[in-house]
Amino acid sequence: MLSLAEFTGRWSLSREIADRLGGSGRFDGAAVFSPSPDGLLYEEEGSLTLARGGAFAAQRSYDWRDEGGTVAVHFADGAFFHRFALSERPEAAHFCAPDQYDVAYDFSAWPDWTSRWTVRGPRKDYEMTSRYRRAD
């Protein structure tokens, strides 16, 4: 089983956003996991290109906290986001009224791995697949 420490380092990151409502796009950049007091700080930055045209600089960060076999992911402001186990079927859900966010992580090709988010709500209907590959 993976441990949180194994994510430490730099990763190349590509993300496809398939929006059934027409806002598809692609993100290309890098993600870095660095040690923090509670686990790892996740920071990504790159370029988001929308299918309708236009490219934008994009960045985000999260805290990945080690909870003894599970990972608790928190937003940069400290608010809880979701929790998943570093196991065979790591999945999680997050409800942010009125939208539902469901994620499935896949570590079966480690050190390459993916996360696939399915997001549904009154004005949202998309899948976002992120592919990570060790860069260092």
Rank of each mutant, 00 (worst) to 15 (best):
M1W: 03
M1L: 12
M1H: 15
L2K: 07
S3L: 14
S3N: 07
A5R: 10
E6K: 10
F7Y: 08
F7T: 06
T8M: 05
R10F: 13
R10H: 08
I17G: 03
I17D: 04
A18M: 06
D19L: 05
D19Q: 11
G23T: 05
G23C: 05
D28E: 10
D28Y: 01
A31V: 14
V32H: 05
S34G: 07
S36D: 14
P37I: 07
L40W: 02
L41R: 15
Y42P: 13
Y42S: 11
E45Q: 14
S47V: 15
A51I: 12
R52S: 15
R52H: 13
G53E: 01
G54E: 01
G54W: 00
G54T: 11
F56K: 12
A57I: 00
A58H: 14
Q59C: 11
Q59W: 01
Y62A: 06
Y62M: 11
R65P: 09
E67P: 00
E67A: 14
T70A: 11
T70N: 12
F75Q: 13
A76V: 06
A79H: 11
F81R: 04
H82L: 05
P90R: 11
P90L: 06
C96F: 03
Y101C: 02
V103F: 08
A104N: 09
Y105D: 08
Y105G: 01
D106F: 06
F107G: 00
S108W: 03
A109N: 11
P111H: 03
W113Y: 01
W113A: 07
T114P: 08
R116D: 08
W117R: 04
R120P: 02
G121E: 04
R123H: 14
K124T: 03
K124Y: 07
K124G: 03
Y126G: 03
T129E: 08
S130A: 04
R131Y: 09
R131D: 07
R134G: 06
A135S: 13
